[in-house]
Computed example of a mutant assay.
Amino acid sequence: MHSGQVNVQGGEAAAASTRTPQEAVTTATHALDQLAGVHSERSVQALRDFCTRLAPMKNEPMVREFERKAEPLLGAAA
């Protein structure tokens, strides 16, 4: 992987393997921060998949905040 590239799928796998939803959201938020300025359909799809898995917890403040941060990237790819 070149400098400046982000392995979102790896970050997503790390998020999925964490013990708590908070750890998963923290890991995914870090990956999201790294995606700023990256325009990759694969990365956006990984983000969409993660957001789908968060849906059962959509009323949690940390999940709402993550979705708020993810919205610009998801909207730009739509």
Rank of each mutant, 00 (worst) to 15 (best):
L74A: 03
F66R: 12
L54V: 05
L73G: 12
Q45M: 12
T52H: 04
A70N: 15
M1G: 15
M1T: 10
E41T: 09
T26S: 08
A36P: 01
L73W: 03
A31F: 04
G75R: 11
T52M: 08
A14W: 01
Q34Y: 05
G11V: 06
A55V: 04
M57H: 15
T26R: 03
S17Y: 05
L35F: 05
P61K: 08
R53P: 04
Q5C: 12
A55Y: 06
L35G: 03
A31K: 13
G75I: 01
V6Y: 02
G37N: 08
G10S: 09
T18N: 03
A78K: 01
D49T: 15
E65W: 14
L54T: 07
A24G: 10
A28M: 14
A36K: 15
P21T: 10
T20W: 00
H39L: 06
T20V: 06
M57W: 10
L47F: 03
V63Y: 12
Q5I: 09
S40M: 05
A24Y: 06
S40F: 00
D33C: 03
M1Y: 12
K58G: 07
E67P: 04
S17E: 10
L73F: 10
A78L: 02
K69F: 05
P21N: 09
A28L: 04
Q22G: 00
N59S: 15
A70V: 13
T52L: 13
A15M: 04
L73V: 14
A55I: 01
R42D: 09
A14F: 02
V6I: 11
C51E: 12
A77Y: 00
P61W: 12
